[in-house]
Each structure stands twice: as structure tokens, then as C-alpha cells.
Design a protein around this nucleic acid. Structure first.
Length: 501
RNA sequence: GGCGCAUUCGUCUAGCGGCCAAGGACAUCGCCCUCUCAAGGCGAAGACCAGGGGUUCGAAUCCCCUAUGCGCUACCA
């Protein structure tokens, strides 16, 4: 890919943990940058002192790193257009605001929050269509301004929206969008605490950082005419805009805690693979054609284009993510999956299991559980706890699986059947060299000898050795468990049956 | 209330005037495989393309209206 002047940015505000919507926005920016050989810049928009959340910036960066979205400029890596934290660029915004003031593109507003609130309720009551600032301070005389200043009121700086005319722009996704300037309000540029609003900081930084394409969420579409007007007033060339469709929860509302995990780091902690997450997110609002579902990161980079981003918002489909994650898990080599799985097992397995876990042993059971996994870790969903890896396969690790004695009988066996079966198995297994083939050769005929159907007999042994009615193939499982543990568990099962009376 | 955007199977989507009595994927259901559960294979069901008007020889695809959903309407981003 040749050198290009494409410069895009991901500009999150650290007011919370990054959710899938934020990350999808980052992904599209990153894919576009990598596809075009341009630069991907991360800029932290920490201009809201009140809503700032401790650790949010770190979580955002962690999310990007986890998914392998590297940035060319931004926190930690620096760059020639820094600093990349807006809180460190206050002087620039203040100077710009002063400039706008001098050019009469802006004016100081002394209205108190109380007055503004009152004004709004008044307007709502009178069903007035324009429900934003009434421009009371727009035409203040020097003397009036001086009077407010003398009272010690620190004003905000508002932008002077042209009273007439239209503002139009060509969105790369939505095509041409037109707004009447009369529907726009004199929005605040600089707050009274000296911090800029998003509108000011965003426009100034995108210009100073030479951003060529702004790919951001749809919710910004309505603000774009304000930004265009600001660019014009400042004499800047506006970048190209592409407003991305939103990601919604299952009830079609904006994604939130209620919809279960939304923070990207939660998906990581539940054991989703980064490549699966990337693949899935890429397909939320973008597609290559009518059939391709699975993409490597390289294929995404190669094929990504803004033209193929859809206009409509999408509902986050957890089922499909799970399926896709399963696909990626199954594609992992035994070694790779073992490495991925180890930390999750370490975290999720009961305390009683001795640490450190044996990598060799885990690697041996990986082929047995691989196609049964949808995630690597324990999943807590809104619908209740859902077992994955560790909880589902802890019988490979714990000393004695805990289970209800009735499971041994299943639906068809009597207590006598079960005891007879287990005793016969115990005897036959004592002298056996344990491997899946020898186990099958020994146990299949034994079923008939004890007068049980193979399925029932195997089911009995499955519960006795694993404590579960659903588990990986019996003989391979028993081989992995080993002779000693199997015999011990069968004995324990017999005891359970006898204790039952 | 105003402004803006959107509207194809339950969900993600393909479709950019005739190849569409609408294709793929997830989920669902059935069958096969099978020691259970998965995985896998095969198949079924599922969208009269939000509704109504146009334009056109011909519309899911273009235009208009309506409805619905979402977003914005903060000294939040």
C-alpha cells in the first residue's frame, strides 16, 4: 500500500468504559486508515470535568490493544500534532474562542443556568418550536457586557449562527444533508470553566491534526452543520464526513447495561477471542457481499470501504457473536487454544484445584472440549450465570465431582442395574491398560454381559466418572482422567448408590 | 413540539430499474452421523421488500405523502 495522506481519528471521551459501539467506530476508522495506508490517530476528548471517569482512558486503550488496533499518533506513542489529550490543549481553544470573538463570529453570554432552565420550560409550555437558547446576549452593547463583567459573572462564549440561509454537506454514507440555519442554535463554544465544548475542541483539533475523514457515530449528524459553520468562520477547510449507523440493544434502544455486557473489556473477560470480536463488529454495519461472513484481519483491511457501510442502525446479536467465537476457537491449534484457555481456567476453576495447572494436561483435554466451547471463560449474562469452559469441564480437574445420585440411574436404570454395571466395570477396568481403544474394546462387550444397552451403560459410566450426563466422548474422557481417578470415582458412585438405601 | 436520519426473514445483511414469485449467515425446527453433549452434513420454515400514491414497458431499487423507530434539540460527548 502506498503512502497516503488519509488521516482519521478515534476520539473517545473518557466518561465511561468503551462499549461495542465505540469500539466499532474505532474499528471502522482503523480499517479505513490501514486500507488506505493512512494514519490512525487516537485523541482523548476529556473536556467534561464533571463526567470524567477514573480509569476510562486506560480501559479504552486496553480495548484497542486487545483487538490489535494500533494507533500511529496519540496517548503513549505521541506524534507531531500533540498533545493528544484535549485537557492539555486548553490554551489553543481559548485563543480560538478569542479570535472568534474578535471576528464577531461569537459573543459572550452571561445568562445563568437558572435563567436558561426557566427559559426552556417556558418555551416548552408555549409549544415553541425553537427550544434552545433565545439569543438574549447576542446583541448586548459594550456597556451592558461591561455591567455583567463588573458583577463578576464569567460568561460562556457562544457561536453566532447565521440567522438565514442553509448549511449543506455531503455525507459519505448518508449523501446530501441540508439544514436550515434558522433551526440551529447559538451553541456554546467555551464553557465558563475555561474548557471547550465538544464542538469547538473537535473542530479545532481535527483541523490542527489534519484529519481528512471524520468517521463518527450517527448521533453527530445533527451537529455537523454547526461544525461546518464553525469551520467556515475559522477559515478552515472541513474534512469529509461519514456518519456511522448506531448499534442498538435487542429492544432497539441505545445499548446500555441492561442489555448485558456492553463494555468491550467484559467480552474479553468472558473469553471471546479478539479476532472473532473484530470480525463480528466489522459485520455490524458493513458487508463485503451477500455471502462472506468470516474474515481475517488482513482480509478486512484489504476489503474495507466506506461505500459498503450501511445506513441503518443494527441490533447487537449476541447469538451470532457466540457462534462466530466458536468458529474461531475451533480453528485454533491445540497449542494456541491451550495457551488461551490456561488463564481462564486458572481464574474460573474452583479454589480446591491445585495451581499451577499442568499445561500438558490441559493440552491433552483441549481436543476433547474444543468443539464444545463458545467462549473461553465464565459468562455471567443478564439471564443468569451461563457455564463455559471451566465450570463445564471442571470434572477434569477436581478431586471428586459433585452430582445428584439420581443421575446415575438416568431414565431407564434401576438401582440394581446400576450397581451391577458399575461393579462389573470396576472389575474389568482394574487390570486394563488405559487408552480409549482398549476401553472401548473392553466396555462395549461388557454392556451386553451385564444385560444393559450400550447407551445406558455408557451413560452410567459417564455420570460416575464425570458427574455429568453431557460430556466429551466417554472413552477419551476416561483415558484423559486416567485409571486411578476413574476407579476411584466408580467406587464413589457405588458407595453413593448403596448409601441411598 | 422542531430539525435530521432510517425502514428487506426474529436478528445481521445481499440487492444500487428487468438476472428477485428476493440470495447468504445466526437463531429455530427436522433428518443423518452418534455412547451423551457438541461439532459436522443435509433439509425445512421464515420478508407479499413499513403503508399509500406516483414515474416507467418494467420498481425492493427513482419521486412524493403517511406511519413507525432512532438521533439531536445541555456551560454532555
Amino acid at each position: 500500500m502506498s503512502e497516503s495522506n488519509v488521516r482519521v481519528r478515534f476520539a473517545p471521551s473518557p466518561t465511561g468504559y468503551p462499549h461495542v459501539g465505540n469500539i466499532r467506530t474505532a474499528l471502522f476508522n482503523w480499517l479505513f486508515a490501514r486500507h488506505s495506508g493512512g494514519s490512525f490517530i487516537v485523541r482523548i476528548e476529556d473536556t467534561d470535568v464533571n463526567r470524567k471517569v477514573e480509569g476510562a482512558t486506560e480501559a479504552i486503550l486496553d480495548g484497542l490493544r486487545w483487538l490489535g488496533m494500533d494507533w500511529d499518533e496519540g496517548p503513549e506513542v505521541g506524534g507531531s500534532y500533540g498533545p493528544y489529550f484535549q485537557s492539555q490543549r486548553l490554551d489553543i481553544y481559548q485563543k480560538t474562542a478569542q479570535h472568534l470573538l474578535a471576528e464577531e463570529h461569537a459573543y459572550p453570554c452571561y445568562c445563568s443556568e437558572e435563567r436558561l432552565a426557566q427559559m426552556r420550560t417556558e418555551m416548552a409550555k408555549n409549544k415553541e418550536s425553537m427550544r434552545s437558547y433565545d439569543r438574549r446576549c447576542r446583541n448586548l452593547t459594550r456597556e451592558e457586557q461591561a455591567k455583567f463583567e463588573a458583577q463578576g459573572i464569567i460568561p460562556v462564549i457562544r457561536f453566532k449562527i447565521p440567522l438565514e440561509g442553509q448549511t449543506r454537506f455531503n455525507d459519505m454514507i448518508k449523501d446530501e444533508v441540508v439544514f436550515d440555519n434558522s433551526t440551529l442554535d447559538d451553541f456554546v463554544l467555551l464553557k465558563s470553566d475555561g474548557y471547550p465544548t465538544y464542538h469547538l475542541a473537535n473542530v479545532v483539533d481535527d483541523h490542527l491534526m489534519k484529519i481528512t475523514h471524520v468517521l463518527r457515530a450517527d448521533e453527530w449528524l445533527s451537529s455537523t452543520p454547526r461544525h461546518i459553520l464553525l469551520y467556515n468562520a475559522l477559515g478552515y477547510q472541513p474534512p469529509l464526513f461519514a456518519h456511522l449507523p448506531m448499534i442498538l440493544g435487542t429492544d432497539r434502544s441505545k445499548l446500555s447495561k441492561r442489555h448485558g455486557a456492553t463494555a468491550i473489556t467484559e467480552y474479553r473477560d468472558q473469553g471471546y477471542l479478539p479476532q472473532a470480536m473484530i470480525n463480528f463488529l466489522a459485520l455490524l454495519g458493513w458487508s463485503l457481499d451477500d455471502r462472506t461472513e468470516l474474515f481475517t484481519k488482513e482480509e478486512l483491511i484489504q476489503n474495507f470501504s466506506i461505500e459498503r457501510i450501511s445506513k441503518t442502525s443494527a441490533i447487537f446479536n449476541l447469538d451470532k457473536l457466540k457462534w462466530m467465537n466458536g468458529v474461531y476457537i475451533r480453528n485454533l491449534s491445540a497449542d494456541a487454544l491451550t495457551d488461551r484457555l490456561l488463564p481462564f481456567l486458572d481464574r474460573d476453576l474452583p479454589q480446591s484445584v491445585k495451581r499451577p495447572l499442568s499445561r500438558e494436561y490441559v493440552k491433552r483435554i483441549v481436543p476433547l472440549i474444543r468443539e464444545r466451547l463458545t467462549t473461553l471463560g465464565k459468562v455471567e449474562s443478564a439471564m443468569g450465570a451461563m457455564a463455559e469452559a471451566a465450570p463445564l469441564y471442571d470434572f477434569f480437574f477436581v478431586d471428586e465431582p459433585v452430582y445428584d445420585t439420581r443421575l446415575l440411574l438416568g431414565k431407564k436404570l434401576t438401582k440394581e442395574d446400576a450397581v451391577r454395571g458399575l461393579e462389573a466395570a470396576l472389575e474389568r477396568l482394574q487390570a486394563l491398560t488405559f487408552n480409549s481403544q482398549s476401553l472401548e474394546d473392553a466396555l462395549r462387550p461388557l454392556a451386553m454381559e451385564v444385560g444393559l444397552k450400550a447407551g445406558d451403560f455408557f451413560g452410567l459410566l459417564r455420570v460416575a466418572t464425570t458427574g455429568r450426563t453431557a460430556a466429551p466422548p466417554l472413552f477419551q474422557t476416561m483415558e484423559a482422567l486416567g485409571q486411578e481417578r476413574c476407579l476411584k470415582r466408580i467406587k464413589a458412585a457405588l458407595k453413593k448408590l448403596q448409601d441411598k438405601g
